[in-house]
Write a protein that binds this DNA or RNA. Structure first.
Lengths: 218, 218
DNA sequence: GTCTATACAGGGATAGAC
DNA sequence: GTCTATCCCTGTATAGAC
């Protein structure tokens, strides 16, 4: 993922036989950033190629020099957001975090969700919905890969947590990882629909269910 | 929800000052049924008003005598599907069901999900995504109400289950209801993306986490 | 290499004829 | 109640300016 490298990506720039194309890459990144802003403002449906182009000061046709299709552009936005989220997560790991009720970091994961502008959470939902439709193999492949990677990450987190004794040792961890991701997805859906809904109790409950029964310490 | 009654719904038929309009209601239902079939075939994105109209043998403009907007039509499809699912659930309750590992009926709930044509599961996903966008208050209100009703149903199921001793008695049931729905939603998403993914272990795990620890009966 | 201009097919919404 | 014709929007595609 060359986000600040000069190496040309699949297309994006150049005839494919000359070296790096710093200007084209920079332009592409600029388009990406502006697109994210437009999303935050007008959401997925309102973010037409023409609307994005206008916000950047460019015709909609120009966008297709950098992204083959609208779908591609939006997938790239999600990739960018994933990168940013991972960077933030790494930053958070260096902070203190031990309030006793968030042993697995689930609450923090959902905060990471929520820190994204609502429009961008809705974007992810819309893109998954499109990926489910027939004929969107590109999007489907993206999310297949993304969820597989997510399951891997959560699985390793759970494995470490079990070694530390904060996860019950009678759980099938693969199934638990899939379950955790599913629950976070589903909770975020309900919360997006009704921001007044307090989903933290459900998250805390999930954590409690996964952690070993306390021999009444209190 | 007058599904077989002759009472006129909000709009749908007639000048609004005469009695019931059986013919208009029947036509409306016919449109609904045909729409469902089209969905199953071509999915949400492919089911344009023109495509639906063509399948029925009318112009797309005619559809709007019965449904104000495309959104309305699709919401009505979901309502119809909910009605059918509830009818089927009632039917299943009269059957024998005790394989010992599905105490709460979660597996059956997801089977009910899966029994719907994939295209229709994707439809639900797409409609939720649209409801999340700004300016779709109608869809949003529909899903707000639907999820509230779902939480109520699951809550009463859990309450009964707890009374029967198959649910731990130290759980906040409201949080548990929200969590169960979220998990089922999220699991169905992952399964739709990758039908090869076996999500049953995760469902079984959720049930085991909710049920009281067995004092090693086996 | 980058972008504008333009055209095309298709979408939902709508007005008015019958 | 249903049609046709129309409007404005969309994503996509291509031609050609510079």
């Amino acid at each position: 993922m060359p986000s600040e490298s000069d190496a040309p990506t699949d297309r994006a720039t150049g005839p494919g036989s000359r070296g790096p194309y710093p200007k084209g890459v920079r332009r592409r990144q600029e388009i990406l950033d502006r697109t994210i802003e437009v999303f935050a403002d007008v959401g997925f449906e309102g973010a037409s190629l023409r609307a994005v182009g206008e916000a950047i000061g460019v015709s909609h046709a120009a966008l297709r020099r950098y992204f083959d299709t609208r779908e591609e552009l939006f997938l790239e936005v999600l990739r960018e957001k994933d990168r940013q989220a991972m960077a933030e997560a790494r930053g958070r790991d260096h902070d203190d975090h031990d309030d006793g009720s968030d042993v697995l970091g689930l609450a923090r994961s959902l905060d990471a969700y929520a820190s994204q502008v609502p429009g961008l959470m809705a974007l992810r939902h819309s893109m998954v919905a499109r990926a489910l439709e027939a004929g969107n193999e590109h999007s489907r492949a993206f999310f297949l890969e993304r969820y597989a990677a997510l399951r891997g990450e959560v699985l390793s987190t759970l494995t470490l947590a079990r070694a530390a004794g904060v996860v019950r040792d009678d759980l099938p961890l693969e199934a638990a990882a899939t379950l955790v991701i599913a629950t976070l997805d589903g909770l975020s859906t309900q919360w997006l629909l009704d921001p007044g809904l307090d989903i933290r109790p459900s998250m805390v409950l999930l954590e409690q269910l996964l952690t070993p029964p306390q021999p009444h310490v209190g």
